[in-house]
Design a protein around this nucleic acid. Structure first.
Length: 114
DNA sequence: ATCGTGACTGGGA
DNA sequence: ATCCCAGCCACGA
């Protein structure tokens, strides 16, 4: 089944990110680098952000995706900067004193996308 | 085809 | 510890 559907913009690499992000369990968070690695682009975590940018408004829990530091880098892209933190807290995610997610407790690594 | 940008990461000073 | 730089991939103009 592995098939390259490269066609219109927004469907080959983005599709992988959507699948992975949608698999993130509630109360867990992952990093752009982890998603990128699973998608096969470990060196381009930025591109993952681009995918989430296109996913903004979708059903993808992009609020569970943070940078390797645990900082909510894309919180501003949710429409409300406080929404992201609020959503994670609602799911049981704990934050550090500096406002970063406790990666050591909620860091979740997505399954390898094959 | 080329250039610029980006919700990142890692390493060096 | 902080700040700066380079690399990487994909998209839009």
């Amino acid at each position: 089944m592995s098939k390259k559907v490269k066609n219109k913009s927004g469907d080959d690499f983005f599709d992988r990110v959507y699948s992975v992000v949608s698999k993130i369990p509630k109360g867990k968070v992952t990093t752009y680098g982890a998603i990128a690695e699973v998608c096969g682009i470990q060196s381009s975590a930025r591109t993952v952000g681009g995918a989430l940018n296109a996913a903004a408004g979708s059903d993808l829990p992009c609020h569970r995706v943070v940078n390797r530091n645990g900082t909510l880098t894309g919180k501003h892209h949710f429409g409300d900067p406080d929404l992201m933190e609020d959503l994670l807290k609602s799911e049981g995610v704990t934050f550090r004193d500096n406002g970063d997610v406790e990666m050591g407790k909620h860091f979740w690594i997505p399954p390898k996308f094959k």
